[in-house]
Design a protein around this nucleic acid. Sequence first.
DNA 1: TAATAATAATTTATCAAGTAAATAATCAAT
DNA 2: ATTGATTATTTACTTGATAAATTATTATTA
Lengths: 339, 339
Amino acid sequence: MATIKELSIRCGVSVSTVSKALNGYQDISEATREIVIKAANEIGYFPDANARALKMKKTYNIGVLFSTLSNHGLRNEYFAHILASFKEKAAKRGYDITFIEHNIGNRKMTYLEHCRYRNFDGVFIACAEFSEPEVLELVNSDYPVVTVDHAFNEAISVLSDNVEGMRQLTQYVIDQGHKKIAYIHGTKSSVTHNRLVSFNNVLKENGITVLEEYFVEGVYRCAESAEELALRLLKLPDPPTCIIASDDYAALGVMNTARRLGLKIPEDISLAGYDGISVSQALEPKLTTIKQDTDKIGAEAARQLINLIESPMTTSLDNIYLKVQLVKGGSVKNMNENR
Amino acid sequence: MATIKELSIRCGVSVSTVSKALNGYQDISEATREIVIKAANEIGYFPDANARALKMKKTYNIGVLFSTLSNHGLRNEYFAHILASFKEKAAKRGYDITFIEHNIGNRKMTYLEHCRYRNFDGVFIACAEFSEPEVLELVNSDYPVVTVDHAFNEAISVLSDNVEGMRQLTQYVIDQGHKKIAYIHGTKSSVTHNRLVSFNNVLKENGITVLEEYFVEGVYRCAESAEELALRLLKLPDPPTCIIASDDYAALGVMNTARRLGLKIPEDISLAGYDGISVSQALEPKLTTIKQDTDKIGAEAARQLINLIESPMTTSLDNIYLKVQLVKGGSVKNMNENR
DNA sequence: TAATAATAATTTATCAAGTAAATAATCAAT
DNA sequence: ATTGATTATTTACTTGATAAATTATTATTA
């Protein structure tokens, strides 16, 4: 790889003249600048990222935390899609992305230590166990941080408007004539909590009360966990007519159980999910669900993080709520027509 | 972040003594080494990656090419899963991973230039348009390169044993009594070519000849493209009894078309795919397909690449073929029982 | 005891950049 | 011709780490 020194020899000027010429300094004659730029293009010169980072304290590299715990990580479509759009947007703004790891080889380091070691300019926490001390350490550090689906005071979070999403979904189910609605909610987090609260509010507004047994808690985004819970719900003496799962993976689990019990969806049991992953629309019937705009979430996260990196004084730490969309599949039966 | 200089002051020794002590040099007394290591742990010292890379010509960072062209990239489950296991394995061996990009900000650079700019130690081409000049430039460079699903002379490729996979699948379909088998093959590449050849060989071995119209070419891993082709196949005067798609996404497309035409799978038309993505097993009926071991592909790719980086003289450039597994779903009808 | 060897630590140079300060060159005005 | 102002270029230093060369200290041997 060509270095600035080689370039300077080729141009017959000093190294610093080259540096200044390329970095837009004003004390360089236009003639010299032209020569340097032309030569740089000819030999395909790019300043070495490591050397530059060392001197400038700026790497143009963003650390992305993407822990593979439980059902998260790259193997989860929701997060993989978010990462894809984050990556595209970051590249457009001039930033590379590198995954944050725990243990690199045999050196044990915390997430924060890894970030400092690599000198990331900022941190994107796409998915992680938000209660982990190491994650908190990262969020509470002086790093610019943007998270997805988890609100912190010390960071910007980009998330779907879950209150509105669950409101639309629940109202739709109620409008279809359902009164016995069960809810499988995920492991407690601000996201799942908001959805649960919203669900309850809509029930209340519509003057509907449901059995306490209709509320069950499962592992978030885990089909297997939902399978069991669905079995419990469907075997109740007074089973629900509709099950709302807190995410599409859980909905898939419910579907499996229903199938095993010989129940048809939506004839025998209605079902709705949340997320709008692509599988949900490949099924027969298509799943009624709330589609989260993963493209926007990723792009907006990148936008916010890079703004925070480049203009920390004018970027507020407010959370960003994005619109969601009700997808009317065929998995919720219209009970009104049935009368 | 603590620097080596701060650490040296704290220990009352020179900077290079600290460096030597931490890097296992023998010309350091055990007493001094202990003091240094203890102090390093106390203040949580890690050598700065950029400074280290500059001096050592080694970044412990792998560039990963993951272009989002057509139906590839992170949004494709197959590749996302491969990346997940690659990432885990690389971290275990002490390497970080950073995505290779084209245009970073407003600087246009080729993939190779980006790699040199960041000084990656090696390159993993997970998915890309292999005919692109930029990709070829990368493969032909002096970088250690590992690819997935595409054999080059200048790089190691990790791929499934597609000949054997398609053999198993085709034989299974034939054993189920099918003789009129159509094949939707993907855009030409070594992978799709091998599958097609294998399909033909098995037909021949079984003394089966099929109509020329049964061979159609579609866009690889694209459901929409397969939808159209399936329509063409199913509208033939003498339609096939089974359609084999070159991948599961294409199989999904076929499924959609069949559904639209009111045809039931497998009663009216049998269907098989290739890849074994999770959607394929969430469907009803489950798809008969060949499962590629994405965990192994990713891990093996990482293993090979890091071996190539660390011991280029003893790592051969041979391709690695991994075993596949026939998944007998319910999408292929047993024609023998039907007689 | 002096010479030599072995060990332990320090100094200096280097990697590829960027930048402040010093210097040189050019030209105009006096 | 001298001074001053302006513009262009070079020198010297810095970033954090490592490698090579060098020096200091202690131990061993003739």
